[in-house]
Structure formats: C-alpha cells, structure tokens
Design a protein around this nucleic acid. Structure first.
Lengths: 123, 123
DNA sequence: CTGTATCCAATTCGATACTG
DNA sequence: CAGTATCGAATTGGATACAG
C-alpha cells in the first residue's frame, strides 16, 4: 500500500473528525448517485437528458440535487446555451478530472470483483 | 486518465444497470461509514471499541450494520477469542487490502483538496 | 428541453436500554 | 467487552405536476 491511512490523517490535521470538510466532500462524491454521475461525465460532456438516461434509475430530483452539489464543490461545470428549446451541457472541471483519475481505478476494481463477492458467507 | 468509464462498462457487460452487483458493492464501500471503517482497518487490526472511537460519530447500530455488510462482502474478517470479557478483532481480508490499495489514493486526494472546495460558487 | 415544486413513502440513523 | 433490540426522528428518494 503506497500511503497509509495514518499518514493521510497526519498530513491533514483535523481531517476525518465529525463534520470536517473531508467527510463532507467524501459524502458528496462517494454517494450513490454522485459516483455514477461523475463516472458518466468522465467520458465527456453530457446534456441533462443524456445524464438522465445514462445513469439509469436516477430521478429528476436526485439528478438536480447531485449536479448542484458537485457543481458547488467545483467538480462539475454547467454551461447553458441560450436557445429554444434550452440546451445545457455538463462537464468535469479540471478538478473533477483530477478526482476521477483516482476514482476510476476503484470503480474498475469493483466492476471486476463485484459479482464474486455478493451473498456469500463471511470469511 | 488510464482507463475510461466506457471501457470499464464494456469490459464488464451488464454492470452499472439498476440493482446490478457493481452498484450494490459500490453502495457498501462508498457509504458514509463504509469508507471510514475500511480506512481505519487499513491501518491494522482493530477491536470493536477501538473502531467505535476511531470512527468518530458512528453509532453502535451503524458500526454493527457496516461490519456485517463488509464481512458478508468478504472484505472484513472477524475473529473472536473465547475469553471473559469477550475479545473480538476485525481486520481486512486480502480482498479488502486489495480494495484499499485503490481507495486510499482517492481518500488522500479528498483530504488534500476538501477544505478548498466547500461553499464556493459553481465554476 | 431543462429543470423546479410539492407531496408522500421508504429508508437511514441515533439514542437508549438491555443481554451474554 | 461486544454486541442486540426497539423506537422515533430525520433524511433520502421517487412520482407527479408544472414552469421557463
């Protein structure tokens, strides 16, 4: 393991305490829908309707909430083109791309191992 | 970016659909408490009470639930030593250590960037 | 097309009390 | 020490309707 959890905690003093910034951001990006929206955007710019289809099962409410949160965190960029009908594009910011570089390997690992790990007895 | 989301989806057909194994496991390990429990265990074996203190703010109920889930997924190993008073140790399985190798870089990145990202306006 | 507003159901979660 | 059981509060989440 390259970096230990203890070293991470030491490096950023005060992190991981209740309600700290690190925990808040972790909750945003590791949330049920946050991961999937970020993953979808990591493939490129998406419109609202495309995201809605691409992230199967998400409701309009949760898509709106998730996009607002990730936007406020500076991970997602929203660009609206004045036109009728409206045209809005979502994409990752540089910060968001930096994040996904760390997150995609994890998602890949889960996709590879998930089916073997469910429903079996504790080791 | 080493691997694209599209490539991951292609490699594991059927993943990321509603209720699929990948999504279920993602929910377990990316959950509010799952991440913190796994991170704590990545530093080494912990007893129940140690986890309770180390993961500040977790209730007994959520600690129990989280440990059972991660255990059933084969990520956490539970070993109880017959003694009075009881002595139980939790640790990562090889699978769990493999997972944390991918997750810790992400956690480290968040700890480093979190404080700069909160409460600011959308980009 | 791109959302917002509202209501209601389901789930999560925490506090407390209690057991082996 | 290491949990389980139970209850109620709080949050999340989905369906629907509607607005710009």
């Amino acid at each position: 393991m390259t970096v230990s959890y203890a070293e991470i905690r030491e490096a950023s003093v005060g992190a991981f305490s209740e309600g700290c910034g690190t925990r808040v951001v972790l909750d945003h990006i590791m949330s049920k829908w946050g991961v999937l929206v970020l993953a979808s955007l990591s493939d490129g710019t998406r419109r609202w309707g495309e995201l809605r289809r691409d992230v199967g099962g998400i409701s309009e409410k949760m898509l709106a909430t998730t996009l607002r949160t990730l936007s406020a965190d500076g991970l997602v960029h929203r660009e609206s083109f004045p036109a009728v009908p409206p045209h809005v594009e979502y994409s990752l910011t540089p910060l968001g791309r930096d994040l996904m570089e760390r997150m995609l390997p994890l998602v890949e690992w889960v996709a590879e191992h998930a089916d073997g790990m469910l429903g079996r007895d504790p080791v």
